[in-house]
């Protein structure tokens, strides 16, 4: 039964990892942009929520949408003002610039919030759970997290494949050079893609704040998980991202069941094994 439980918790944890990864995958998919500060943006969203709820005593029901809107706006402006300038055929400048951003963000968070690790108290969400059987239960927060991940992926899938905006985003991914001939502005479309990714980043940060302790240096580890998920799932596949998240989540919880200290290591090992067997991921974009 402990094994079933480990797998179940892993699946739910996978939702969070899919949320970590979806924004990264989206930005890479639309504009071949590798955002090294992705994890730090997630942590920033977590701190923003913490500050609004505990610092300014704003009700979570209001704070959550505020964080989402703030991150989306910041993402749009960041792309428009800074990141578009380094976007080009060469993949290295964006990596270097966002690596610099990552360091700046970590230090800024350290200045404002100190190095102490924090967690947002989520009230009843922290404790409520649903009993499946005598010794099997699902926590309300992990379940909500997982459902949110499914909703986010389904939402992105809808936007990408059923709306004019998604059509433009996919066209830009295919051939940005001629998109202006269709009346689209690359600078604007790239910024919209980053804004969309930032909405997912905000949602990921919100759940992270409630789920675990975090500190200003917690970003890079999230980036690493996100990378692993994207690569397991296959670049550019949204549902692949969810499956990738679940695989990493299950690897970690089952690993922890085998030996408490090897949770993260087990995840990396499964990632490596899959990389050897399927270097292009489980659901590569054809």
């Amino acid at each position: 039964m402990v094994w079933i439980n480990a797998v179940l918790q892993g699946v739910l944890l996978g939702g969070l990892y899919a949320l970590f990864a979806a924004g990264l995958s989206l930005m890479f998919g639309v504009m071949r942009f590798i955002n090294m500060a992705h994890g730090d943006f997630i942590i920033t969203a977590a701190y923003l929520l913490l500050a609004l709820v505990t610092g300014f005593a704003i009700h979570p029901a209001l704070a959550v949408p505020l964080v989402i809107v703030a991150l989306a706006a910041a993402g749009y402006l960041n792309q428009r003002i800074l990141l578009n300038r380094v976007l080009g055929k060469d993949i290295l400048p964006p990596v270097l610039v966002t690596f610099g951003l990552s360091i700046i963000i970590q230090n800024a968070l350290l200045e404002v919030f100190s190095a102490d690790s924090q967690k947002l108290q989520a009230g009843w969400l922290d404790t409520a759970s649903f009993k499946l059987s005598e010794d099997l239960a699902i926590g309300a927060l992990p379940l909500l997290m997982f459902l949110a991940a499914v909703a986010v992926i389904a939402g992105l899938q809808f936007v990408f494949y059923k709306t004019p905006l998604g059509r433009m985003l996919r066209a830009t991914s295919d051939d940005p050079e001629i998109v202006p001939l269709m009346g689209g502005s690359n600078a604007h479309i790239f910024a919209i893609a980053t804004a969309l990714a930032s909405v997912v980043v905000a949602i990921a940060g919100i759940f992270l704040a409630m789920k675990t302790n975090f500190d200003p240096a917690a970003g890079p580890a999230r980036l690493l998980f996100a990378f692993e998920v994207v690569i397991i799932g296959g670049l550019g596949s949204l549902w692949g991202t969810l499956i990738g998240g679940i695989i990493l989540g299950v690897a970690q919880t089952v690993g922890a069941q085998i030996d408490t200290g090897s949770q993260v290591l087990a995840g990396h090992l499964v990632f490596l094994a899959l990389l050897v067997v399927r270097p292009r991921g489980l659901f590569p974009k054809t």
Binding site: R167, R170, A171, D174
Partner: peptide, 9 residues
């Protein structure tokens, strides 16, 4: 020149 259709559309 070269048509340049969007491959994933």
């Amino acid at each position: 020149e070269g048509r340049r259709l969007f491959a994933s559309l």
